[in-house]
Structures are given as C-alpha cells and as structure tokens.
Amino acid sequence: MKSILYGFVCALIVALPSQGHALSFPLPKAGNDIVGELRQMQTRYEDTFSDIARANGLGYTEMSESNPQVDPWLPGEGTSITLPTRFILPPGPREGIVINLAELRLYYYPPGENRVVTYPLGIGREGWSTPTGIARITGKRTQPSWYPPESIRQEYAAKGEPLPKVIKAGPDNPLGNHAIYLSLQGYLIHGTNKPYGVGMRVSHGCIRLYPEDIATLFDQVSTHTPVRIINEPYKAGWQDGRLYVEAHPPLSEQRAEKGINFTPMVRAIIQALGESDQKPDWDAMKQAAMGQRGIPVPVTTAPLLRQPATTTPASGLVLSDSEKR
C-alpha cells in the first residue's frame, strides 16, 4: 500500500506544471498604481544575492540597488537585507506583456483576471541593446534550436570559440527549454542555461527569464498577446492619494549620452500629477533620483483626512468639528 501511495505522489508531482517564484498581485483599486510590499530577511552565511534573488522572484541588479551597503557575494551571517518586492506599475495600458528595460523586469496582465504577474529578466548588454517598441507574440516552442546570427558567430570566432550554424536543444543551448517568438524580428523571450545572468545585462539583445519563470509564462500566454517594450528608469504612481517615485539607474548608453539627467523623472512626476493640486517635495525627489534604489518613495505629503461631519439634533445642520468650535 505504501509503495502504491508513494508512486501516486511521485506521479502527481511529475504531472504538476512547473511553478516559478514569480510575484503575483491583485491589480490596485482605481486611482492607485502600486503593488506588493517591501520585505526584510536575515541572511545565512552561505547566501549570495544571486541565490536570494532567484528564490524571491527578483534579479541580481534589483538586490544590489536596494542594498548598496551589503557585499552581494558575501553578505555574511545574520545581515538584514531588503527584498524590493514593491513596484509602481509601468505607465500605459495594463494589458498583455510590458517590459521595462531600465527596471530589468517584465509585467504580465492575464486577460480577465484583474491581476499582474511580474518576473525579473536579463536584457541585451551594451552594444547589443534590446530595442523598445510595440510587438506581439508570434509563436512558442519548447526545446528550441538556436540559429546564431552571423554577427554573433563572428564575435565568437574572434574569441577562438567558433559556433555551429545551429545549436540543438540541450544543456549548451542558451535559449533554455522554452522560447516565445516576437514580431520584432530576431528577438525572443526565452529561458537560459545560465540563470545567474537573469537580472543583468548579459544577452545579445534577447530577453531572458529564469528557467522556472519562462516555463510558467510560456503556459500562460498565447499568440497575438501584445508586448510593449519601454525604457523608463523613473516611474511615478499613486497610492491612497499620495504620489510615489521609483528610480532605477538609467542604462549605460543613456548615462553616456546624457549624463546625470533628472528631466525624465520630473516629466514622469508632472504627468502623474495631472490636474492634482498636490505639490511635490523636491528634496524627496532629489534623494530618490540620487539614490536610485528601485524602491517607491513618497514625493508628496500624505493627504489630509476630512473630519467626519456631525448632525445636531436641534437644527439638522451638518457641522464639522472645526465649525463647532
């Protein structure tokens, strides 16, 4: 009997779909833009940021940004670190897939489910930048073969590491076990045989996810799903009547071209403020921009709560507490 039960449990485990460590949140109520909460944890001696990131649905760079005073490879026993699991949703429509390159993060809005699922990702390194733009999913494939473009084959040949014209599925295939093809010719969302590169700029332009995350996303999305790729280091959004900013370091190409430039952050804040009469705290904005920790911080004061009105039995008039004085 025990052996039958054991066999049943094993079969059930094999049959279950692979579940990654993606972060899933209900969409915020109308007028709000923030999901998740910051978390804290104590490290063990053997922990590294790469290990902690993968176990918590984060990427290496996110961990480094939020914990700038901690050694990412040897944080030490009992070190308190922040898990940056609170996010301002990207600007624009909340539909399909939205990829924010500066944030190294993908957001997926499952149709009809009123929630968002978000994954860390790896993108193209400098010189092989992942492009921005509007695309859609054109196909999906498990155990994909990789056909290295001639430019990549030349790069590897120059290093004395020639590549074949095709790399079949297997442990040496950089696409991993799942590939999602985009209408942007030559660009894919795929897994990887080097998961430590997720959350960093390491690819030749494609978008990499942890193997367990791409397996989950692969099963969720369908062809023709819209994909919007943006590059927004500064996001602004509301929560309960208060405006927040989330700042990430701009990509190296932007820094080389424009230097330290806070205009995009100011633009994001002004756009988010709209017709609101709240005044931003410019010192808080400056600190957020300089820190670039990837954590939403408030840049307006908390809204004043109105005192509840009281009805006097004698006259039926509605008076606030201040008026009664």
Results as ranks from 00 to 15, higher is better:
Leu74Ala: 15
Val35Asp: 14
Ser66Asp: 02
Gly76Asp: 14
Ser80Thr: 15
Thr82Ala: 08
Thr82Tyr: 03
Gly78Val: 07
Leu74Ser: 15
Ile52Ala: 01
Pro72Trp: 03
Thr79Asn: 14
Pro84Asp: 14
Leu38Met: 09
Phe49Asp: 00
Phe49Gln: 01
Asp47Met: 14
Met41Gln: 14
Val70Gly: 07
Ile52Lys: 00
Val70Tyr: 13
Leu58Phe: 00
Asp51Phe: 00
Arg86Leu: 10
Ile88Pro: 08
Thr48Phe: 01
Glu62Pro: 02
Pro91Arg: 11
Thr43Gln: 03
Gln69Thr: 14
Leu74Pro: 15
Glu65Ser: 02
Glu46Phe: 03
Glu62Ala: 02
Ser50Asp: 05
Gln40Arg: 12
Ile88Asp: 05
Asp47His: 15
Ser64Pro: 01
Asp71Tyr: 09
Tyr60Arg: 03
Ile88Val: 13
Glu37Asp: 06
Arg39Tyr: 09
Gly78Cys: 10
Ser50Ile: 03
Ala53Met: 04
Thr61Leu: 06
Pro68Val: 05
Met41Asn: 12
Gly78Phe: 10
Arg44Val: 13
Leu74Met: 15
Met41Ser: 03
Thr61Trp: 12
Asn67Val: 02
Glu77Phe: 15
Asp71Thr: 03
Ile88Thr: 09
Arg39Asn: 08
Ile88Met: 04
Leu83Asp: 12
Ala53Trp: 08
Thr43Arg: 02
Ser64Met: 05
Ile52Thr: 01
Glu46Met: 00
Gly76Cys: 15
Arg39Thr: 11
Glu62Val: 01
Trp73Ser: 12
